[in-house]
Amino acid sequence: MHPTGEVEAVLAEILFYVFATLLVAGALGVITARNPVYSVLFLVFSFISSAAIWLLVEAEFLALVLVLVYVGAVMVLFLFVVMMLDINVAELKQGFTRFAWLGWSTALALIGEITAVIWGHGLGGIDVNRGFVSEPANYSNTMAIGQVLYTKYLYPFELASVVLVVAIVAAIALTLRRRPGVKVQDVSRQVAVRAEDRLRIVKISAEKRS
């Protein structure tokens, strides 16, 4: 049943439960940590744990891209922002419970939606009793994803990238403003400067000693 052998299968299962526990613990840490910096670090930890779980099912492309994009770039910027904030925790907590009903109902709605989608599609054709079957040795997860991404899902993929570009342009347009009277360097002018513009060499004939 398991082509990789019984020992490896048991080991993979143990690793799955270890990383799944770490993932849930990290996710709980994100919402319970008092210090926002710790929250971000817990989120990083959760990303790494879920990347490890993806590695266990041989989805190495997804796992590494998750680490590369989220841990390596997005969360660094999150940390960057959170560390700069001077958050007064007590002030933040005031009226926190007023919105608890909103949080709970959102969470419940999300859980309901996910469950409905999964049951509505009959688990998406996944046979939960079959267990995990590993791919042949020459299987490349990257190639498999590339093949569906650029054929079957080409339009959604390109649309998503267009949405992201629009978001970037919008974000830059919102923050870009020119204040009058601010001294800035014009680099292209600096680079274009020639010696003749700045320096004048004057030949002066020597005077006679009086």
Binding site: L64, V71, G72, N141
Partner: peptide, 13 residues
Amino acid sequence: NAGLLYLLALSSM
């Protein structure tokens, strides 16, 4: 197989 991605992921950490 994904050695290059692995390196990018690690260097970003």
